[in-house]
Computed example of a mutant assay.
Amino acid sequence: MAEDLIIATGSKAEQYQSLIPQIQALIEGELDLIANLANIAAALKEQFGWFWAGFYIVKENELVVGPFQGPVACTRIRKGRGVCGASWEKAQTIIVPDVEKFPGHIACSSLSRSEIVVPVIRNNEVVGVLDADSEAYNRFDTTDQHYLEKIVELIQW
Rank of each mutant, 00 (worst) to 15 (best):
D4T: 14
A8L: 10
K12C: 08
E14D: 15
Q17N: 13
I27G: 00
G29F: 09
G29S: 12
G29L: 10
E30P: 03
L33A: 05
I34L: 08
I34G: 05
N36F: 01
L37E: 03
A38L: 08
I40F: 00
A41G: 06
F48V: 04
G49P: 03
W50I: 04
I57V: 13
I57G: 01
E62G: 03
L63S: 01
V64R: 02
G66W: 00
Q69E: 07
P71W: 04
T75P: 02
I77L: 07
K79I: 09
G80D: 11
G82S: 11
V83L: 08
C84E: 00
G85M: 05
A91N: 13
T93N: 09
V96E: 04
F102C: 13
F102L: 13
G104R: 13
S110Q: 15
L111W: 06
E115R: 01
I116E: 03
V117F: 05
I121A: 06
R122P: 02
G128K: 00
V129G: 00
A132Y: 03
D133S: 06
S134L: 03
A136T: 11
Y137P: 04
N138A: 12
N138P: 05
D141Y: 11
D144T: 07
L148F: 09
E149S: 14
V152L: 09
E153T: 14
L154K: 04
I155H: 03
